[in-house]
């Protein structure tokens, strides 16, 4: 059985799929991610992440209509599933709970 954990990049992609709700497909995710993270991301890396998320059933996909801007190919849209949302929530609460345990330290000079 594959573990249903989330890698860092996968988590970013999943967050972006959730944020772009219903408008999330390869190129859109790429552009938004590059904007947010501020560094170059390769499209095939996103494809791989999406595929993994889909096999873990964190996202589901559907095809859009044919657009001329894509050489006649359809867009493959991704939507986050309930499991995906739950995974994000779990990740988020885990981080927050640990974060809150950090004693109040200051790094003053």
């Amino acid at each position: 059985m594959k573990s249903n954990s989330l890698g860092e990049f996968e988590e970013l992609v999943l967050l972006m799929v959730a944020a772009l709700h219903d408008e999330a497909y390869g190129v859109a995710i790429l552009q938004n991610l590059e904007e947010k993270v501020g560094k170059k991301v390769n499209i095939s890396a996103i494809h791989v992440a999406l595929k993994r998320l889909e096999t873990k059933s964190f996202v589901k996909s559907r095809y859009g209509g044919i657009t001329t801007s894509r050489g006649g190919r359809r867009k493959k849209f991704y939507v986050i599933t309930a499991t995906g949302k739950a995974a994000l929530d779990a990740q988020y609460s885990l981080r927050t709970s640990i974060y809150q345990q950090i004693p109040n330290i200051s790094f003053g000079r």
Binding site: G26, V27, I43, H47, S69, G71, R73, K76
Partner: peptide
Amino acid sequence: EVIEEVEGDLVELYIL
């Protein structure tokens, strides 16, 4: 199964 997505995205990026 994957050509639709991969080719589509690559072409769109190319055009952009």
